[in-house]
């Protein structure tokens, strides 16, 4: 780009804006591009308003506050500013870490959840072999047969999935509100438990074993950059071998910045009731 022309356009535009501003309100100090870049240079978590001369300054704050998306970030040429780009890389580093975490055992104890495992083996294998995360180990099967009430109306299962962090952060809010909601509708829940190394379709294996009317699986989602703590609730009417993805109903993005955990628990209860009434789930539920 011809930089002198660009600079001239820029200066003209800034002058116009300044005139407008001066006539309206006490003048804001003119922000120049280089000074905003150095603000908060030591703290990559603080994102400041970087658009140097927005058409509507208060409006820009309103936009930025309305979404966790990385907007109002400005640019140098067509590229992002340095701090913004480095912040993104920091968040990516954090997301990678959360994949290798473990769910807090005290949390599971406190909520009365015992644990079984799938055949996942280890994290690397879990990533490459989703089929193994869909099958509970033989020892786990024996435990479930012995410990769980068969043919429950509602079976609740928790799994770490791709983010143990998601369970640690949300389960203590979602789980009690889900139980309250199930109670309030006069429904009965079976024996809840935790599955380590689970994939969504582990619902089918558990469905075959325990034959619930509706199964609710609370599972950690693949971690994102904005949140590595996002949980999903997958629900299915009579999950069995051969159940297809579109038979499942899902509420995703359960975390404080997305669907609030307590509300999610109550909403899951409402959906479970609908599934029992209509004897269907997924795209057949028609909500």
């Amino acid at each position: 780009m011809n930089s002198s022309i660009q600079l001239e356009l820029f200066v003209n535009r800034v002058m116009e804006e300044l005139e407008k501003k001066l006539s309206e309100s006490p003048r804001e100090p003119m922000i120049d591009h280089s000074s905003t870049e150095t603000v908060h240079a030591s703290d990559p978590d603080v994102v400041t308003v970087k658009v140097p001369q927005p058409k509507w300054k208060e409006g820009l704050t309103e936009l930025i506050e309305s979404t966790p998306a990385r907007i109002g970030v400005w640019r140098t040429g067509t590229r992002p500013l340095t701090k913004e780009m480095l912040k993104f890389r920091c968040d990516h580093a954090a997301a990678i870490d959360s994949i290798y975490g473990e769910v807090n055992a005290n949390l599971l104890d406190r909520l009365g959840l015992f644990a079984v495992e799938t055949r996942y083996g280890n994290t690397e294998n879990y990533l490459k072999r989703p089929d193994m995360g869909r099958i509970v180990t033989e020892a786990g099967v024996a435990t479930l047969r012995q410990a769980c009430k068969p043919k429950p109306q509602v079976q609740i299962v928790v799994s770490d999935g791709l983010s143990a962090n998601a369970i640690d952060s949300n389960l203590s809010d979602v789980y009690p509100s889900l139980l309250d909601s199930v109670d309030a509708y006069g429904l009965t829940a079976g024996t809840p438990f935790f599955v380590k190394g689970g994939r969504v379709a582990v619902m089918d294996h558990i469905g075959e074993l325990l034959e619930p009317e509706v199964l609710v699986l609370l599972i950690g989602e693949r971690p994102g950059l904005v949140s590595s703590k996002s949980m999903s609730a997958y629900m299915c009417y009579r999950p069995r071998n051969g159940t297809v993805e579109s038979d499942r109903t899902v509420i995703s993005n359960i975390h404080p910045g997305g669907t609030p955990p307590v509300e999610a628990g109550a909403y899951i209860g409402t959906l479970v009731l609908k599934m029992l009434e209509r004897k269907a789930s997924g795209i057949h539920l028609d909500v």
């Binding site: 998306a69 990385r70 993104f88 968040d91 950059l225 996002s230 993005n253």
Partner: peptide
Amino acid sequence: GVAMADDCMLNYQSTSYH
């Protein structure tokens, strides 16, 4: 085109407006 390549709903990274 996703803001700064980070999709805050689908939790993956793509290409950005930039």
